[in-house]
């Protein structure tokens, strides 16, 4: 109870700073996710074309995933220095896994009969991909994106390690001083952010489902 009151106290006294941190946090995780989608989906498409490439990409992404946070940040810092750039790059690299994994699984899982039907209709490879495979795999891809988004908002606390701010700055201040109120004051906005962003993505997913239903109805 004291903890809650104390946390409310932190909110009251430093809400402006917290708001700024939340903005930075959202900006960094959103940029990272957009980059990860832009890179991850094409990679996964490539993986469906070639078994060996699939193995190679998967292993590389797994390996990137296992690089410890500080080491990855130190490596990226060589090129991008302190600040948002380094934080966003590292976050994007860490968010690739669920996006690639789900896009790949989703595309592979598309009913082969439908693809054959498409081929029979004279569709080109690209048409098959954009008109049959991706729309059908969309719910699975979006699920991957939603997992990646949540993970990325959670992981964005590391941005503070390279001076990029975000809610991690408040959380780390709390952690290094064993001050749970500060930790909560940083963690609660992060959790709210996750809920909010996930709601928005849920809305988008409903639209995608709508398209899927039409696709199903049309087939």
């Amino acid at each position: 109870m004291d903890l809650l009151i104390g946390t409310l106290g932190v909110f009251a006294s430093s809400w402006k700073q917290l708001l700024a941190f939340t903005g930075e946090h959202l900006f960094m995780s959103a940029s990272a996710i957009l980059i990860a989608i832009a890179a991850g989906v094409p990679l996964a498409v490539w993986m469906t074309r070639n078994q060996r490439v699939a193995f190679l990409i998967q292993t590389t992404i797994n390996a990137i995933q296992t690089i410890p946070t500080i080491s990855l940040l130190l490596i990226v810092m060589i090129f991008l220095g302190l600040g948002y750039g380094t934080a966003i790059t590292a976050l994007a690299l860490y968010s690739l896994l669920p996006i690639v994994q789900n896009t790949y699984a989703g595309l592979e899982n598309v009913n082969k009969n439908l693809i054959e039907a498409g081929t029979g209709m004279g569709m080109t490879k690209l048409q098959l991909l954009t008109k049959v495979k991706i729309p059908l795999a969309m719910p699975i891809i979006l699920t991957g994106i939603r997992v990646a988004t949540v993970v990325s908002i959670g992981a964005a606390t590391m941005a503070t390690f390279v001076g990029a701010g975000g809610l991690g700055e408040m959380i780390m201040r709390g952690i290094v001083t064993t001050d749970d109120q500060k930790v909560l004051a940083g963690a609660i906005p992060a959790a709210l952010l996750v809920i909010l962003v996930d709601l928005i993505l849920g809305k988008i997913e409903k639209r995608a489902n709508f398209r899927l239903q039409t696709a199903k109805a049309q087939k």
Binding site: V150, I171, G174, I175, V183, G186, A187, A191, V194, D198
Partner: peptide
């Protein structure tokens, strides 16, 4: 349920362990 699991994911590990 999914919201709850989402929130779990955002708890910083040092705080959760604490």
């Amino acid at each position: 349920v999914i919201g709850f699991v989402n929130i779990l994911q955002t708890i910083p590990s040092l705080a959760l362990l604490g």
